[in-house]
Design a protein around this nucleic acid. Sequence first.
DNA 1: TATACTAATGACTACTCGGTCACTTGTCAA
DNA 2: TTGACAAGTGACCGAGTAGTCATTAGTATA
Lengths: 279, 279
Amino acid sequence: MHMTKKQLIMENALELFAEQGFEATSVQQITDRCGISKGAFYLAFKSKDELILALIDHFTTQFTSNIDYLVNTTKDDDELLYKFYYFVFDSFERHSDFAKILIKEQMQSFNEDFMLKMRSYDQMMEQTILLMVERLFGDAVDRTKHDLVYSIKGFMKMYSELFIFYNTPLDVDVLARSLVEKTEILAKHIITPFITNELVQQFQHGICKEVSVDQLLDVIERTLHDIDASIEKDSLELLKQELLEPTLSRPLVKGLLENIQLHPHCKWVAYLLRKHFGF
Amino acid sequence: MHMTKKQLIMENALELFAEQGFEATSVQQITDRCGISKGAFYLAFKSKDELILALIDHFTTQFTSNIDYLVNTTKDDDELLYKFYYFVFDSFERHSDFAKILIKEQMQSFNEDFMLKMRSYDQMMEQTILLMVERLFGDAVDRTKHDLVYSIKGFMKMYSELFIFYNTPLDVDVLARSLVEKTEILAKHIITPFITNELVQQFQHGICKEVSVDQLLDVIERTLHDIDASIEKDSLELLKQELLEPTLSRPLVKGLLENIQLHPHCKWVAYLLRKHFGF
DNA sequence: TATACTAATGACTACTCGGTCACTTGTCAA
DNA sequence: TTGACAAGTGACCGAGTAGTCATTAGTATA
């Protein structure tokens, strides 16, 4: 899919951005490192902004949909929290370059819609964690669940710094187990909430949460363009039809989703379709 | 003390940096906002880098020494944790502009020794929290105290985002109480540590922790230059003598420290001297 | 008022940056 | 071999930057 040039640029830019930051890295530096000319860069990306947007999109969609898939497919409640933490920190370790960029550029640095995009990804992640918390601890944490979510995010934030700042290899297994313990302790004992339901609604005020059908069709179209002819491509075509006018039964739709959701390029579209069809 | 011009620049630059980021803000913008010329800027600061360094120095020294003072002067253990959290988030709320800059520019954006400075401030903060944890929970948390410290820092990180991203006024009192509860719950129940003593030593490897006498004298000298003749100035002079050749008894030294540590310009030097003389 | 000195100015320099485009190179089918 | 078209090049442009310095304004002293 002539992605090679784009990928080459993205991989090299990722490292440079992680080292120096986005604004401190020039297009010249990127092209030098890739061994290509400046013109070639602008054949692949319309602008420098489009490049970092593509980078952020690529990693966050991958990460978010993977987590959601994990939570959805892990049937054993006893394992879930461990698997969640393990996957999170394993990802941070493997993609520490990207984690650095996220931390560095997480604010309204340049573009306004870039910020909105970041925020909506964060919301999706929070939603997934909330679903997990509700499933694991149920009504027992009804009043304190949002504080639990925030505590979990706090653990993630703090301990992920270890992977970013220190290059020491860390035992993700032990880390995950110790955080499972902390989380369960908090879930069992918290009485005093800070983040109430009203507060959450105040936060979400003004942030679009639902993905429109048009947006979904757009994502599907782009995904279809990216993948070769295969069972996944056919399944996605059928899902597109289903989206335009529903004809298939739920089990059939679910089966089509199963077909595509392990394909590397389909993870994001599968995540969005899962949410849309209510699986 | 002809600090007025410097302060004018620092206050306006703080807001611009918080809005747009350091690199995206030009010196021209700063001087325009201050209503001064570019030349006047360079009379106050040698470079743009020196400006942000001064900003970071000012706030972090203030914050660190204030926290340390709080922990040292609060005699009632039952109040300590609450007072700690309350002060932390109250500071974040009052200086949210600076908090934004810290988050945005917290990485090795430009200077290498800037990074080292940041890291050493972070270490000092961690040290203070550790002392607090040890004092409050003692041997009971001996194996898990570093995880407790990291959890506390995680809470601080996560909940402080609320002050930065959302402009809603938040009830710091309720927040502090709910975090006190979480912290005490964790302290009581954590069994599985992740951050062991060896790991901590691995992290601290290569980071200078002790402030040399020469550096201390330098800070004293600059502080003396900043403050007017007063009882504080005289006390600091005496402490300087004591540093060069010890003659006074411990109670006398402690008294001198008491004299200076509430003066706005002396908080940092008082913090360093407290640590040096072992109070 | 004249003098001396500091504070302040803004036009200016030297430079870097993102982005463009006329041009060259490589690769096909005819 | 030719021609057509896509892929790739890098000199160049305009905009904007940090930092400088000859000049001026303001002020206190003699």
